[in-house]
Nucleic acid binder design. Structure first.
Lengths: 181, 181
DNA sequence: ACGCCCATGTAACTAGTTACATGATTTG
DNA sequence: CAAATCATGTAACTAGTTACATGGGCGT
């Protein structure tokens, strides 16, 4: 049982889902491809943590809808008593910024502009989703709200930072080419 | 050439360093163990991107100090012209929060308290480091500043979120046990 | 017609972690 | 006297990505 397995159980503890949907839902919190998820679900099923029923669809391919079992819930319960391991972030942009002196300012500027746009998109998408959730009756479980708020905090700060960084860069650029013409 | 290789080159473009030091410096931006770094450095050397000189030390074990070559700098230059891939974060805590209904509120509370303390520590450490850097003469390269500021933004937001989440949880806890005695 | 979305799976590979191995020096 | 730090490396494993494979429906 690795972290991704627990993550899948965690999603299933809120609602039954197909492997395909689990894959998309877990992306923002724990990136994983379908090729990793399908075998894990089979493994979880053979361990008795989940079970599936085949749902036949006419317009779309048939799917396996997985649901959590009492054994799965017990596994989550004991997992929750253990401390969480430290979060880790891998961001290629920061590695690039560290050696920015080696390249063209225009390239670095493009990288930062891309990041600004990315954060804006993510933030807008999240806020739309939070809006929907706030109107929902009955209100969604507290866990869901905490997650979405965490993502909102994160992208707000990422946006602020990247905008600030871009301003720093533009300042530097102006210093290097003062008084055009 | 994978991202970690470029990351090592990026660090070396600012200062020559031993594998051991590179390992510690790259941690915050791209977690990696020494067992991954040493073979990569050997590979980078055989590709002509870096070279090392043996530095004999009396009080500590001898070390190999790597420095970047013109070929390495050229590799960085072309890497900087390519777009950076999207950042990804893996945080076990969010997976745990998502299934918090399955466990005890006290356990969840402990998890959040741990996170609050963690963010506070990181933030304090960073701000001390930023303080040192601001006094430094000559000022450090812009890239370094951008990175440290990014980390500061990040831990500030993480701290705000985790404190907010903890308040939400305590509220919920009070609702469940109203008017003690 | 071409490509994307849905849906599931396996095979081959790369990336990353844990464990094994060694050994001196400093700190509690 | 035990544990941490410095320093390098390899071996064995787990985790994660890319590529291969299939196939109907839907939009342009």
């Amino acid at each position: 049982m690795n972290t991704l397995s627990y993550g899948l159980l965690s999603l299933l503890s809120n609602s039954a889902d197909s492997g395909y949907d689990l894959m998309r839902k877990i992306q923002p919190f724990w990136p994983a491809k379908h090729s990793q998820i399908y075998p894990l679900l089979a493994q979880l099923e053979s361990g008795g943590y989940v079970q599936h029923t085949l749902v036949v669809q006419s317009d779309k391919p048939d799917k396996k809808v997985y649901s959590i079992t009492p054994i799965g819930k017990e596994a989550l319960r004991s997992w929750l008593t253990e401390p969480a391991c430290e979060p880790n972030t891998r961001d290629e942009l920061v590695l690039k910024l560290y050696c920015m002196e080696q390249g063209e300012l225009a390239d670095i500027r493009r990288l930062l502009e891309t990041r600004v746009a990315y954060s804006q998109d993510k933030l807008a998408w999240l806020q739309a989703k939070l809006e929907v959730y706030s109107l929902q009756q009955p209100p969604p479980p507290l866990g869901t709200l905490l997650l979405m708020k965490k993502a909102e905090y994160h992208f707000e700060s990422d946006l602020s930072w990247s905008e600030w960084a871009l301003r720093q860069l533009v300042e530097r650029q102006n210093q290097e080419e003062p008084n055009p013409r």
